[in-house]
Design a protein around this nucleic acid. Structure first.
Lengths: 140, 140
DNA sequence: CCATGATCTTGAACGAGTCAAGAAGAGGGG
DNA sequence: CCCCTCTTCTTGACTCGTTCAAGATCATGG
């Protein structure tokens, strides 16, 4: 269970002020993994009664910048957010319905992080997206 | 040199009609790797004098569907296109300026394609994006 | 409890991309 | 070689996720 006290603690931990919209958005991201902004907006309103969509956008940006949530955006999809941060995991995305599931990389802690030729870039993260078909879409 | 005859051959090879807009767009993608739609539109107009942006969008979609070009879209970026297809290569993206460079995966021909737990998905492609800082941005 | 600066509300705007209807053109059949 | 048909291109409007801006509200330190 993610209590408000717990969530408030997370916010204080990254020196963000504790506000109702932030608690609601944070709770929504925790209980709806890979939700898009609109779903998070709905969930937040269900909790508070009224929040502006702008506030949700602002909060999501602040939480992302603080590292409390992670923003993911596969090609052709709107932005989605998840609360699982800090570990090294990736995503499988369904080509036909857009469903997303978490995947731990099989190749070790830091997968593919060493590119064969980095063109002088300083690489700090390797993001992997697996494309395929989800069980539901395979059935039809 | 990518001549019009060569490009026309590519189009016929995938059973697409050979039209001026298609030749221009295909040439633009070949000479401007990782260009966005707007840059491709400009390059196409430089070649033909006049093309509608809608035609460029349509052509890019047709070429992508036919497998002649590949669409890439790192988070927070607009769609970009490249003519290098069919091989297994990935991209480094600069966090501050958005520059993109090609990278061959170091881990073998099919990198990370075996996810540890696929949640029942049928995976057909693994896309890797390396995030970092390009040489130019490191300098400033 | 107050002051101050961060955060939220409201409402407008932006821009990449898509939709729709009709004109133009590619390519096969006569 | 020309015409017919179906695809493709033009024009112009529009959608939708996201951002901008100005003023009101509220969390937090003193």
């Amino acid at each position: 269970m993610t209590t408000n006290e717990h969530l408030a603690g997370l916010l204080r931990g990254v020196e963000l002020r504790v506000t109702q919209p932030r608690l609601a958005v944070l709770a929504a991201v925790h209980e709806l993994p890979h939700a898009d902004t609109d779903a998070i907006l709905d969930a937040s309103r269900a909790r508070l009664g009224q929040v502006s969509h702008q506030a949700v956008y602002d909060v999501l940006r602040a939480l992302t910048a603080a590292g409390l949530v992670r923003r993911i955006q596969p090609s052709g999809s709107v932005a989605r957010y998840e609360s699982r941060v800090g570990d090294n995991h990736h995503h499988v995305v369904c080509r036909s319905c857009g469903a997303i599931a978490d995947v731990d990389c099989a190749v070790g802690e830091i997968p593919c992080l060493t590119a064969s030729e980095d063109h002088g870039f300083t690489i700090d993260e390797a993001e992997v997206v697996y494309w395929g078909t989800c069980p539901d879409c395979k059935a039809s």
